[in-house]
């Protein structure tokens, strides 16, 4: 029984790639000037909370998602003060008519680059040999449009998906353990990236993947946010 449980734990650990966060960066410090703290554009926080049902279906929960999004925004605002940053929320709808589509393209492009990083930087079988392990991803200099419109130096993208086991799911995990099968419980996954608005380079990127964490409470969201921002250049 004990060995079986150990097996389950090991399986989980393997699945979640041993460490909760995995960071890549091009810089270790933000460029700071005398005049002002670095101005960081906070792109719309993309958070979704789900429940993992008895047999492994994930069901998005609207009320949890609302609360989670709120908690993360508060946590980010606190973080902002601690780090001496000017974190400015970005709202595409408030941008001038003429540039909105263009800025939206930059956000979509970031989605494509972010997916590429998750795939080619983090997954051994999908690594691009030509990169030789280098972390040199970029959205290109067109991001200057975002700088011109908002007067910001960097843009921070924040994405998190959190699922929690229902009571029934926990029971199944126990049964699975008895049968020697690793049944996955709730998982927290997310990524965050920091883009330099002068050249479009993704100067810092972090992926989070762990079987714990809870965005449903303010305290949990603070801990999770700090975890996802591990290693953010100062």
């Amino acid at each position: 029984m004990r060995t079986l449980r150990l097996g389950v734990a090991l399986g989980l650990a393997l699945l979640l790639a041993a460490c909760a966060t995995n960071t890549h960066k091009q810089i270790t410090e933000l460029s700071r000037t005398q005049e002002r703290a670095p101005r960081v554009l906070l792109m719309p926080v993309d958070v979704e909370l789900m429940e993992l049902t008895t047999f492994g279906r994930t069901e998005p929960k609207a009320d949890w998602t609302e609360a989670g999004t709120r908690h993360v925004s508060t946590a980010l605002a606190d973080y902002n003060v601690e780090r001496d940053l000017q974190l400015v929320p970005f709202d595409l709808d408030k941008m001038p008519d003429g540039v909105r589509d263009e800025l939206n393209q930059l956000i979509k492009l970031h989605g494509a680059v972010g997916n590429s990083i998750l795939l080619h930087q983090y997954l051994e079988p999908a690594k691009l040999p030509s990169k030789q392990g280098k972390f040199d991803w970029s959205l290109g200099p067109q991001v200057k449009r975002l700088k011109e419109t908002t007067d910001a130096d960097y843009a921070l993208f924040f994405f998190m998906r959190d699922s929690y086991s229902s009571g029934g799911r926990v029971a199944i995990m126990m049964v699975g353990a008895l049968m020697g099968v690793a049944v996955q419980g709730g998982v927290q996954v997310g990524f965050a990236s920091l883009v330099d608005l002068n050249d479009g380079n993704v100067v810092w990127f972090n992926r989070l993947m762990r079987p714990q964490g809870d965005l449903r409470s303010a305290q949990g969201a603070k801990e999770s946010t700090a975890m996802l921002l591990t290693g953010l250049p100062k």
């Binding site: 993309d46 079988p125 999908a126 998906r161 996954v189």
Partner: peptide
């Protein structure tokens, strides 16, 4: 839309991890 794109990417990632025993990309010198 971004949710779906990322969700699909994750599913894809997991597929690649689970099924691909060999490298998906080969170097062209």
């Amino acid at each position: 839309m971004s949710f779906n794109v990322v969700l699909r990417a994750f599913v894809f990632l997991l597929l690649v991890v689970g099924l691909a025993s060999c490298q998906r990309y080969a170097m062209v010198q």
